[in-house]
């Protein structure tokens, strides 16, 4: 299989998982973050479910010299914990809380709820462009 085909498959399964888990539903995600409302712990189950195959995959990855369908692993090597990491994550968390949306679910909803998801995705892309401009 060619690289884009594998990536497409990964995206397809990712999106299916978001829909099955209920994480494509912003109201459910925000209910997880709302400790003062009717708390919905589903997101914790989703994280637990995702950890299982990935934990095994990291063990397998260590024994591989290269990925199955390309020449080399290209994984983040940075170990520095700096202000950019923390500030970025903090800002992301604020946006995540306001809308109940992070990048995956926003993309997942773009066909089903094109207007609202579309506005969010466009704003997200604008935010990414602002970051690019201001850090150059």
């Amino acid at each position: 299989m060619k690289a884009p085909t594998i990536s497409f498959l990964s995206g397809l399964v990712f999106g299916a998982g978001l829909a099955v888990s209920g994480m494509a539903d912003p109201a459910r995600v925000r209910a997880f973050l709302d400790l003062f409302g009717t708390w919905d712990p589903t997101l914790a189950f989703v994280m637990a479910g995702a950890m299982v195959p990935m934990a095994v995959a990291w063990l397998i990855q260590r024994r591989m010299t290269k990925p199955m369908a390309c020449e080399a692993f290209d994984l983040p090597g940075t170990r520095v914990i700096d202000g950019k990491l923390v500030a970025g994550a903090a800002l992301f968390g604020v946006g995540w809380g306001i809308a109940g949306l992070c990048p995956g679910p926003a993309l997942a909803d773009i066909v089903i709820v094109p207007f609202e998801a579309g506005i969010f995705v466009l704003a997200m892309l604008a935010g990414m462009i602002v970051h690019r401009i201001t850090t150059q």
């Binding site: 888990s21 209920g22 989703v46 990935m54």
Partner: peptide
């Protein structure tokens, strides 16, 4: 549903990691 969907999300990440060596 959360665990099942989460497992699928994890599986998607496995495909990307072991297939293409990426996050």
């Amino acid at each position: 549903a959360g665990l099942a969907g989460g497992f699928l999300i994890g599986l998607a990440a496995v495909i990307m990691l072991l297939g293409l060596g990426r996050i």
